Amino acid sequence: MPIDPAAAVAAPARRATLEWDHRDVLLYHLGIGAGGAATDDAELRYTLESRLQVLPAFATVAGGGQAAGGGLAVPGIDVDPATVLHAEQHIALHRPIPVRGKAVQTTRVAEVLDRGRAAVIVLRSEVADEDGPLWTAEASAHVRGEGGFGGSPGPDRRRAVPSREPDHTVDRATRPDQALLYRLSGDFNPLHADPRFARAAGFERPILHGLCSYGLVLKAVVDTLLAGDATRVRSYRARFAGIFLPGETMRIRMWADHGRVQVLATAADRDDAAVLADTVVTFD
C-alpha cells in the first residue's frame, strides 16, 4: 500500500536548520502584497528594514525550501505528487518571529487520517532557536485515492460562518505577477508560473500559491483588527477551499469575538468563490 500509517507515524523526525534575515522577510511581505501604497506608514512596517516587523505567516517560508520539512519524503509514504493537495495550515506562535534568525526545525508525521476516498497526512514541525521555542506548525496534505484503510477520520474542524453580518469586509487587489514574486520565497512549483503546466493540470492559467493567499489574509486581519501589530497574533488556522488567480481581488470577511476572529476569504471576481474557509486567528 502506498501509505503505511503506522510506519509513517513511527518514522524518525527530520531536522533542518532554518536561517533568514531582513531581505527574506521583505521579499515575503512583497510577495503577499505589502507595499502597494509604498510610502504609507502602515505599509512601511512590512517593507522598510528600519521599521520592520515579521508577519507570523512568514513561518511557512522561513529558510526557503527548508521550511517544508522535507515534504512527504517519509518512510511509509509513497504517493503520486499529482494526487496531493495542501489541505490545511496551522501556525501557533510561542513568541514574535525575529527579523533575523537561525533556528532548528524538527518535523514528523503526527497522524494519518482516513477520510474515505482520501488520506490526510498531518506534518507537525517544532521550530526553536537558542532562546527557546519560536513556533509550531501543522500542514495537512490531502492525498486522493489513499483512504479507506480503517483509520480515524480525525476531528471535524468545519466552521459555519456566523449568521450575522461581518464586522469587517475588506477587498485586497493582487498583481497579475503576484505568483511570480511570491515564488521567490521558495516554492517554485511550475503550476504557479508556467501556463502550459497549469493547462495540463486543468487550470486556465497559473494559479496563486495557497500559502500566498494565507499570508495575504493574515495581513488583512492584522491591519484591520490589530492596528497593524503582527506581534499580537497567537495562532492562525485555515483550510484551502479553492483556487485564486493572480490579478483577482480577494474579499475578506471578518467576525471578531473576544481575542479571536473567524475569517472567510473569497474571490470577488468569481461570484465570491471560496478561497480560504474554516479560518480562525487568535490574538492578544
Rank of each mutant, 00 (worst) to 15 (best):
R175Y: 10
A198P: 04
A68M: 11
L85M: 08
P195I: 13
V74R: 01
Y28V: 04
A241K: 08
G35I: 08
V127C: 09
V170Y: 01
G215K: 00
R51W: 15
R205V: 11
L226I: 07
T106L: 13
S152E: 12
D194T: 05
R117Y: 12
H209I: 03
D187K: 02
R253M: 04
V217N: 04
D194A: 14
G247H: 06
V61S: 02
D40Y: 11
D167N: 03
A193C: 06
G101I: 03
L184A: 09
I252N: 00
G150H: 02
A110K: 12
L181N: 13
R108D: 05
G71R: 02
L123C: 05
A273F: 09
A277L: 15
R100A: 14
V222E: 00
T39D: 09
V74W: 02
A173D: 10
R23V: 14
A241M: 12
G242M: 14
K102L: 04
E19L: 10
D171A: 11
D272A: 13
V61R: 00
D156K: 05
F197E: 10
W135H: 14
A11D: 08
R270N: 12
I32W: 03
G154Y: 03
E204V: 09
R239G: 02
A73F: 10
A92G: 10
R183S: 15
I77M: 10
L113I: 02
H90M: 14
S185E: 09
G247V: 09
D129R: 02
T231K: 14
D80T: 12
A110L: 10
I32L: 15
G148D: 06
P162M: 12
G76L: 09
D284L: 08
R234K: 11
L245N: 07
L276F: 07
G116Q: 06
V281Y: 00
A38D: 07
V112T: 00
H29I: 04
E19I: 09
D156F: 01
V127Y: 00
T174D: 01
L48Y: 06
G65E: 06
L93S: 06
W135F: 07
S140E: 14
D269H: 05
H258M: 12
L245H: 15
R115Y: 13
R14N: 08
A87H: 09
D80V: 11
K219G: 09
D223Q: 05
D194Q: 11
I77L: 06
E146Q: 14
H90D: 14
